[in-house]
């Protein structure tokens, strides 16, 4: 059953689920953002490990190398990293505004305040 060629993918799935668990279960908004970051890094790692070629080297043309890893996933993931930091900045700005408005960054306390306003 155990195939060492799939070990990378399995660990990456486990890391991804660590991030997902943090996003689902943790009530603290900053913790949720950190969990989302872990999830994003795991997805990036998944793509990069698919681009690896056995015995290959980094895709920079040189006389002394024949086999290169696949450069296409690298390019796509560069874009993903930069977009991730843009969404992160926006999420953190929202958290600062939520703290100003509700004086808390815990999800359940915000829900309570909202319910109190309606009732």
């Amino acid at each position: 059953m155990f195939d060492p060629g799939l070990f990378n993918y399995w660990i990456i799935m486990i890391l991804m689920m660590t991030g997902l668990y943090t996003v689902i279960v943790k009530g603290n908004l900053i913790k949720k953002v950190i969990g989302l970051g872990i999830f994003q890094v795991s997805v990036i790692m998944f793509f990069v490990s698919m681009g690896k070629v056995r015995g290959g080297t980094a895709p920079i043309a040189s006389e002394s190398f024949e086999v290169y890893s696949n450069p296409v996933p690298h390019v796509l993931m560069l874009t993903a990293i930069v977009v991730a930091v843009a969404t992160l900045a926006f999420a953190l700005a929202l958290i600062v505004r939520i703290k100003e408005a509700y004086d808390t960054i815990e999800e359940d306390e915000i829900r309570e305040l909202e319910a109190g306003e309606e009732g």
Partner: peptide
């Protein structure tokens, strides 16, 4: 995994700017 460009972007953006933004938020 041979992704040197991704590695230095991740080190600069993920470990640098993101941590800075999070500390500012804290």
């Amino acid at each position: 995994m041979d992704a040197v460009d991704v590695a230095f972007t991740e080190a600069a953006v993920g470990a640098g700017i993101s941590t800075l933004l999070m500390l500012a938020t804290l």
